[in-house]
């Protein structure tokens, strides 16, 4: 096999690989997820994104430097899991510097109603044999959060615009 124009071949114990320059095909958008590591060290890293100007945390670290560990058994039938953004606004339903913004790993993408926490799925992870195979970005832009307060007859609604 010979490399053609704009192509690069490589070889290692795993086999042969073929590479091609990116030529700008990547869209390095906010909240862009990347699978990293393998086995017990498998995780997800993100490009920096903000919600109302605030950067969420992963395990207490800013999301742009932290790694979301992909651990636990994937028990759902579709073998899917999600990286979910969770925000806890202040009493007025507004995010401020004291609000909690974090990214967690879960087996459901989360709903928009009820409770005091707003949830937005950021990435879908597909699994095989209890190992992550692919990650799909769900959000491409920085976000804005709005809450409609609940009442006696209606639960609160959490929207990411």
């Amino acid at each position: 096999m010979r490399p053609g124009a704009g192509t690069r071949l490589g070889s290692n114990s795993q086999g042969v690989w073929i590479s091609n320059p990116n030529l700008g095909m990547s869209f390095n958008h906010p909240f862009r997820p990347v699978l990293v590591g393998a086995g017990d060290g498998a995780g997800l890293r993100f490009a920096k994104g903000v919600v109302d100007g605030f950067e969420p945390l992963i395990e207490g670290e800013p999301m742009s430097t932290g790694t979301l560990k992909l651990t636990g058994e994937i028990t759902n039938k579709t073998k899917e899991s999600w990286a979910i953004l969770e925000v806890t606004p202040n009493g007025k339903g507004v995010l401020d510097k004291d609000s909690k913004l974090k990214i967690v790993h879960g087996l459901a993408p989360g709903g928009m109603t009820g409770g005091t926490v707003g949830r937005q799925p950021l990435a879908l992870i597909t699994w095989k044999n209890q190992r992550p195979v692919m990650v799909w970005p769900l959000v491409f832009f920085n976000l804005r959060y709005v809450r409609r307060n609940g009442s006696n007859t209606e639960p609160a609604r959490h929207f990411f615009l």
Partner: peptide, 22 residues
């Protein structure tokens, strides 16, 4: 036995493997 490198995508069909550049 073929790995995809940068900017490359590998597809499998009953006829064999196909390499496409992004």
């Amino acid at each position: 036995a073929l790995r995809a490198g940068n900017g490359t995508r590998i597809l499998r069909s009953p006829a064999g493997m196909a390499v496409s550049m992004e």
